[in-house]
Each structure stands twice: as C-alpha cells, then as structure tokens.
Computed example of a mutant assay.
Amino acid sequence: MKRVGVIGGGQLAWMMADAAEKFGVKLVVQTPSENDPAVSIAQEIVFAAVDDASATKTLANKCDVITFENEFVNLDALSDLAHQGVCFRPRLEALAPLLDKYHQRCYLRDLGLPVPQFFAIEQLKNIKSKVEYLGFPVVLKSRRHGYDGQGTFIIQDFASLEEKLSYETTIQTSNESSFLLEEFIPFDRELAVIAARSVEGKIVTYPVVETQQEQQVCRRVIAPAEITPNQLAEIQAIAHTLLNSLEVVGIFGIELFLTANGKVLVNEIAPRTHNSGHFSLDACETSQFEQHLRAVCGLPLGNSDLQCAAAVMVNLLGYENSHSDYQSQRQQIAKIPQANIHWYGKTESRPGRKLGHVTVLLDNQNRDLAIALAQSIESIWYPR
C-alpha cells in the first residue's frame, strides 16, 4: 500500500478520499484541528500547523511521499527534510518561485508568459511614480498567504492606497515589503485551467473553464469556457511551459484573464488541486483529485475529458455565523436534475467560508443556461 502524506486537512485533502480508496492509498494528514474535513477520511493524523516542519518530519516517517493541500508552508524548514531524502511532490524547488506573488510574477514574466504589469513596493518615495505609470485603479496584493480574495484590494486613488498600506507598519526597512502593485485588467472573463504532470513528464490538461467571482471569491465555474481554438491552444501552451519549467509532479491550477480584445494573461498559479477543477469530480472520467494522486504515486495519468456536454459548479459559501448544516437548502438543491452536492462537513459557517459545492451536468453547451441554473441554485442557497 502506498502511503501519501498530505500537508493540510481542508476540503481539498478530503476530496482525495475516493481516489485513495480506489488505488489502495493510505492518506496521512497533517492538520491543526480535529474539526478539519480531512480528519474524517485519513488513516492517520498528525495534529499540527501546516508550517510546522518538526511535525512534517513525523509525517514523513509515516509516508512514502508527501504532497500539499495548501501552499502555506515553510520551505526553508522543509528543505532540511528534502536533503534527508524525504520525497515531496511537487518538489520544493517547484514551489519556491510561486509562494511569494511578486516572485511568482517575476518567474512567469521571465518565462515569457503574458502577465499584467507589476511592481514590488519597496520604499514610500518610489510608490507615487509607479502608480502614476500604472494609472488608477490599481490592484494591491499581499505577497504571501492571500487566497479567496483575501489580501487583494482594488484601489481607486492615492489617498486610499496610503490608507490601505498603513505605511508605518507595512513598509519594512528590509529590501522586500509585504505588497506588490499591478495594473488593473478590465477583463471580459476570468478563465482557469487545471494541468497535471507525471513523474515521466507527461502533461494532461483539463477543459478550460470560465470562473465567475463575487467580492473576489469564486462563486461559479462553467465548463467548458466559450473560447476560440487559438485561445485554447495558447492556454494549453502556457500550462505546458510552466509545468515543464518547474518540473512539477502533480496538479496545478492556473488562473487567467481574457481581455475584451481576446488577449490571455496569467493571473495566479495555485500549486495544488484548485476550486476551479471541482467540476471534474462529477463531469470527467478522472477527477483532479484522482489525477493528483496518480501523479504523486507514479501512476499513469488518466483521461481528463468531459464525460458530458458541459457542467456548471456553484460554491456553497457561508453567509452568516452559524453551526447549521443547511439540510433544507441542500435537499432542495438535490432535486435539480443531474445535480451532485459535495458537503465538506465543516461544523462552523461564517461569511465567505466554502461549505460545499454543487455540480450540475448539462446536456448541451449553453453559457446562458449554465448561468441561469447557477442563479437558481443560489436563490435556494442564499436568503432573500
């Protein structure tokens, strides 16, 4: 039996359970709370923060290979374990240029991949000229630990920028600061693609999807996205360039902008399974979670094609502070034909928290129909 350690015990680890059972894989999870979703499916648990490298050493003693459910780890500390022979997939060198968003931007730019214009914020005196170059609005991003819209701010004027930065506390005396600035992209749509790379270097990409955000949190995913063949080829080429350059083993999520004139830009990279690929659990022969386990266990990659004409995925987000399991809403949503609900078993709801998702399989590819169906689900889920 292959023993796979997973750093992180949220829903992304929890959704590996079916594939682990299919392949006879033992999942050992490092996570801080007994209430985390993956606790219910793991064969063993190491209760510790995901950036606790001493706990990861304990995890390594129980596993053949270690992978990541999230990227909030201490690479410097983990590198000592890698030098001792611990196998990480993806390798730590693949994560290194991605965890800091400024370094990620630089890496993508240096690969020749299309990205928005960006600057690091280093000194107060340099900011004004950079903002004048970009023009308002600008996007201010935390360089580390931002996700689900956290740490990303759209700034309309210089006074708001000064207020948000709170220069006294965020402009450091070191050579690096906590934030980067980048140009605001008035995109037509946001897109994403999940790509996997095997131990042998084979790459498989999933259908490119359209993602729809509200308050910078993903609300809906439509698969496949309505894009041109040239745009599809460009996105697939971006995925191949990135994964081969990093020599990745495992799944990556790549978020993109599509501008009004049809230009594709890379937004952010997630070095793990990703919310934009959840539709694959029900709509594809090989889900992103099975594909990730296939890759990290050295198995051949599976077929990533859609097994239906199209699909729409809707995130079920918390909208209140509660301990409800929302059975009534879930039962109503379950009555929708070809609807598949995945409930993460979290014991606490709070605004914006991902509690579950629902994927509906569609008999034809119709963006308007998919959006209407998503809105119907949301009308059941969210209070009027």
Rank of each mutant, 00 (worst) to 15 (best):
I7R: 01
G8H: 04
G10Q: 04
L12S: 00
A13P: 11
M16C: 05
A19D: 02
K22R: 14
G24H: 10
K26W: 07
L27I: 01
V28S: 05
T31C: 12
A38C: 01
S40A: 13
Q43D: 12
E44W: 00
V46P: 00
D51F: 04
S54V: 12
T56H: 07
K57L: 05
T58C: 14
N61C: 08
N61M: 14
C63I: 06
T67F: 11
E69T: 03
L75N: 01
L75V: 02
D80P: 13
V86G: 02
F88Q: 07
R89H: 06
R89Y: 04
P90Y: 00
R91C: 14
R91M: 12
L99N: 02
K101R: 04
R109N: 12
L111D: 06
L113A: 02
P114R: 08
Y133S: 14
V138C: 00
R144L: 09
H145D: 14
G146S: 12
G146D: 01
Y147Q: 00
G149F: 07
F153K: 08
I154N: 11
F158E: 15
A159Q: 10
S160F: 10
E163I: 08
L165W: 05
R189S: 15
I194V: 14
V199P: 02
V204A: 08
P207I: 01
V209M: 09
V221F: 09
N230K: 15
A233D: 13
E234H: 10
Q236K: 07
I238F: 06
A239L: 03
A239P: 09
L256T: 02
K263V: 15
L265T: 03
I269N: 02
A270P: 00
P271F: 00
T273Q: 02
H274D: 06
H278Y: 06
D282I: 08
C284E: 04
E285V: 10
Q291G: 15
C297M: 05
L299F: 15
L299M: 15
P300M: 12
S304D: 02
A310V: 10
A311R: 10
V312A: 04
V314L: 07
N315M: 06
E320C: 14
E320A: 13
N321H: 11
D325Q: 04
Q331I: 04
I336K: 03
Q338F: 11
N340P: 05
I341C: 01
L355A: 06
L361T: 02
D368C: 12
S376M: 10
S376V: 11
S379Q: 14
I380Y: 05
W381T: 00
